[in-house]
Design a protein around this nucleic acid. Structure first.
Lengths: 199, 199
DNA sequence: GTCTATAAAGCGATAGAC
DNA sequence: GTCTATCGCTTTATAGAC
C-alpha cells in the first residue's frame, strides 16, 4: 500500500467513524477525540486529514451522497427483479434498510438540522438527495402508471411518507409495522377508498 | 402578582426561551447562559427554577404536549367549520402552521433525536404525540370514509406524510409547494390512479 | 503522517451577596 | 428569587517529537 493509499484509507476510516459518532451523539455532542478513537487513531491523525470538526462534518455530508446513490441503484435493481409487485418490493427494501442501519435516520436528521441552521449548506443537502430521488422517480416510471402526475412529484411524496414512517417507527414501533409501509404506498396509488373493507 | 405567580411566570418565560434556543442551536449547541438571557434573566434564575440543562429540556419536551393539544383542537374546529373540503382544510392549516412557526419542526427533530439517543424518554415522546394524533383521527372519522381502515392508522400515515413534506420543504421549497400537501392527501384517499390526467 | 503534550477557550454548575 | 463571581471540567486546536 502506497503512502497516498494509506492516507486515503485513514480518511475513509475517519469518515466512517465520524458517521457513526455524529449519528449517535450529534454534531455538538460528538467530540473529535471520540471520532478519532472510534477510527483507531488519535486526534493528530484527524487534524492531519481534515481542517477541523466542522469541515469533517461537511465533508461527510457531501460524501454520503455516493453511498446513497449506491443504495438507490440497488433499489432500482431490486425493483426490476421483482417486477410482480414493485410497490411492495420498494417498501420492503426501504424498511429493511432503516431497520438494519439504525444510525442512518439519526444522521440524516442531524444533517437536516445542520442545514436548516446553516442555510449555506441547504444546497449541498438538496444535492445529496437528488440522485436517490431521481433513481426512485425512474423506478416509479418503469413500474406504475402515474396518470400524468410527474414521477418527480410522486417520488417526493413517497420519500416524505417513508421518512415520516421511519421516524414514527423508532418512537412507537407498534403503530408503524412493516406492513403499514406497503399499505400506505398502495393507498397512495389506488386510494383508501378502493381498499377492500376487512373490518 | 404574588410571589408564586412571579415564579411561575419566570418558569414559563424560561421554557419559552428554551424552546427558541434549543430549536435554533440544538441541545448541546445551546448554552444555559444563552437561554437565560433570551428569557431576560441570568443563569441564577434558571438554576433556581430547574435542576439543570437536561431537566429543563425534558420538562420542555413534556410541556409542549399541551400546546400541541391546543393546536390539534383548533385543527378539529377548523376542520368542522369548513366541512366542504376537509382534506384541503387540514393540509392548508398544517402548512400554514409549519411556515409560520419556523422553529417548530427543528425542535421536534431535536426531541426525536434526543429520544432515539436516550431510550428512557421514548415513552414521553410517544405520549406527547398521542393527543394530537387522537385529534386528527377524530377529525378523519368525522370527515371521510376510511372504508374499514382504522382512523388511527390513517392518522399515522397522514402525520408521517406531512412531517416528511415539511422537512423537504425546508430544504427545497420548490419541490414541496403548499398544493402538494393537499394533492398528496387527496391521493391517499382517492388514489393517484383516479387523478384526472392533466398532462 | 501520526502521536503526545499543552495551550486557550467555553461550558455547566455552585456559592455567596442582596 | 435573582444576580455576580468563580470553580472545575471538557473541548477544540496547535506544537513539537518521532
Amino acid at each position: 500500500m502506497s503512502r497516498a493509499e494509506a492516507k486515503t484509507r485513514t480518511r475513509e476510516l475517519l469518515l466512517d467513524a465520524a458517521a457513526l459518532t455524529f449519528a449517535r451523539k450529534g454534531f455538538h455532542g460528538a467530540t473529535v477525540d471520540e471520532i478519532a478513537e472510534a477510527a483507531g487513531f488519535t486526534i493528530g491523525a484527524l487534524y492531519a486529514n481534515f481542517e477541523g470538526k466542522e469541515q469533517l462534518f461537511l465533508e461527510l455530508l457531501s460524501s454520503r451522497a455516493s453511498s446513497q446513490i449506491a443504495a438507490a441503484e440497488e433499489l432500482v435493481r431490486e425493483g426490476a427483479a421483482t417486477a410482480t409487485d414493485p410497490l411492495r418490493a420498494i417498501s420492503q427494501y426501504l424498511v429493511d434498510l432503516a431497520d438494519k442501519d439504525a444510525d442512518f435516520a439519526p444522521l440524516q436528521a442531524e444533517f437536516w438540522l445542520y442545514a436548516v441552521r446553516n442555510p449555506h449548506v441547504l444546497d449541498t443537502m438538496a444535492e445529496q438527495m437528488r440522485e436517490p430521488h431521481a433513481a426512485l422517480a425512474r423506478l416509479i416510471t418503469e413500474s406504475v402508471d402515474t396518470h400524468g402526475v410527474p414521477p418527480d412529484t410522486v417520488a417526493t411524496v413517497v420519500f416524505a411518507l417513508f421518512q415520516g414512517l421511519v421516524r414514527r417507527r423508532r418512537v412507537d414501533p407498534a403503530s408503524a409495522p412493516p406492513e403499514l409501509f406497503a399499505s400506505a404506498l398502495q393507498w397512495l396509488f389506488t386510494g383508501i377508498e378502493h381498499t377492500e373493507d376487512t373490518s
